[in-house]
Simulated scan of single mutants.
Amino acid sequence: MTYSNQFFEALGVDHRVKSEVKSLALRTGIPLSRLNFYNHKNVVPSGFDLTKVTEIFGVSEVQLRLKMGRLDRALIELIQNSSDQVLRAINSSAPDERLVSNLKEVFETPLGKLYEADCLKVLRSIESDSVDLVFADPPFNLDKLYPSNMDDNIREEEYLKWMEEWLKECVRVLKHGGALFTWNLPVWNSSITNFLHGSLTFKHWVGVDIKYSLPIQGRLYPSHYSLLYFVKGEKANKLVADRLPTPTCPSCYGDIKDYGGYKHKMNPLGISLTDIWTDIPPVRHAKYKKRVGSNELSIKLLDRIIEMSTNEGDLVFDPFGGSGTTYVVSELKGRRWIGCEIGPCEDIVQRFENISDDQEHLERIRAKLNHLFVPAIARERELRGLWTAQSVSKKNE
């Protein structure tokens, strides 16, 4: 599905005249395919593309969003509050300040830097179109107490406005083809999808089955978190997921699913990853907890996301440091990273000082991936005369 050429019309370009469209590409230096993508999907450009368009055509981002009908909540609020003088109010709105100084750097490795600062200040210091992966696990606005003493119980519209504010910056810094993952409650992720659709391409809504809470009367048992996956542009630079072992009975090692006569067609590296993840454990054991009294993300989750969407040497940014899981996994996997945490960063720094613990944990996780049956289970099946990827392969040779 496409839109009615609102991007080209906003710039005074007739989409029916090929010479005008080609002239637009020459003037801006933006590839023709990308311009057509912005027009067909009604996507507001970001980063350097937005800068080129606004400078060459003398149109502000606000005007572009108004003409394309891509209003964010901050703009809608401004229009509501100034309905009698809307044009004057928009034209007099303050310019966006991007230059930020005096960021407090608290930790550095050969691959990454950690700042104790608000994520918006750090984001505004990052160059446009420079980050390969953004992973964000923001506060959920559930009135929790954080070490930073931030207010985690604000009005819904303010929370969503804040979400859009930092997400907009994340889109700006993301490379074309780069990936954005946001981890949140379904209610919040469902509220920001329309905003993200205006700048990025939707790939997946991943449901991650983790049961933290007790059943609530009048509601279905809330047993999953939402992981939104978008990319900047039409195509991801990388989307290669690990393969998982097929489930087996823990007692007899037999099949849980009957593959019938299709066993010989099974990929020996395992089964394909779906958009429902049931194998991500909550971090409850004291051995793996890095912060007292706070929920943490599993190393397994970040390993999967980083492995799926980046290559070694790529740049990862996480605007909400928490216990530092994203940064540690990035470091161990040879990815460059930029991190920030508005509150105290001692737990993250201490985690890096004991990074060998996380390295051993990560190695155990990865040893179980990309096998149809992990080696230990394959041996048990062979002893019991059960089929393995190797046995059905030999049988069909």
Rank of each mutant, 00 (worst) to 15 (best):
F195M: 03
S251Q: 14
A236N: 10
K235S: 15
T274I: 05
I256K: 09
R291Q: 12
L244Y: 04
F230S: 08
K300E: 15
G254K: 06
G293D: 14
S213Q: 04
Y253M: 13
Y259T: 13
L315H: 10
K263P: 10
D255F: 08
K300F: 00
R304Q: 09
P282T: 02
I271H: 00
H264R: 03
H264V: 14
N295R: 04
V292N: 14
K300Q: 15
G207Q: 03
V206E: 14
G313K: 06
L228I: 11
L200M: 15
M266W: 10
K203S: 11
D279W: 07
H197W: 02
S294G: 06
D279K: 02
L214V: 01
P186N: 06
L200Q: 12
K257P: 07
W188R: 02
L302W: 04
R284I: 15
L302N: 05
C252P: 08
T246C: 11
S199W: 10
L214K: 07
I192N: 02
S272G: 12
I210W: 00
Y212W: 09
R243D: 13
S272V: 08
P247S: 13
N311D: 15
G261I: 03
V208L: 00
S294R: 06
A241I: 08
N267W: 01
V187Y: 11
K211T: 00
A236V: 08
H224K: 06
K203T: 13
L302T: 06
Y229S: 10
L227E: 01
T274A: 13
C252S: 10
N189V: 04
K232Y: 04
T246M: 13
P186T: 05
V283E: 01
L185F: 01
K287W: 06
G270M: 10
L228H: 09
P186Q: 05
D279E: 06
W277E: 15
N189P: 06
L273H: 05
L297V: 01
S298R: 00
P186E: 03
Y259H: 13
Y253V: 09
C252M: 10
G218F: 10
W277N: 10
N311R: 03
C249G: 09
D314T: 04
P245N: 13
P215W: 00
S223L: 08
N267A: 11
G270E: 05
F202W: 12
P282Y: 01
C249K: 04
G233Q: 03
D209H: 05
M308W: 06
C252A: 14
V206Y: 12
S294L: 12
P245I: 09
N237A: 14
L200G: 13
K263S: 12
E307I: 07
M308L: 07
V208G: 03
I299E: 03
K289F: 04
I216T: 12
Y229R: 05
I276H: 11
V187H: 07
R304W: 02
I271C: 09
W188P: 00
K232V: 11
T193S: 01
P250Q: 03
T201A: 08
I192P: 04
H224E: 09
G198C: 02
H285T: 08
K257M: 14
G261M: 09
L227H: 01
S298H: 02
N267G: 13
T274H: 05
P186S: 10
I276W: 14
L200H: 08
S309A: 15
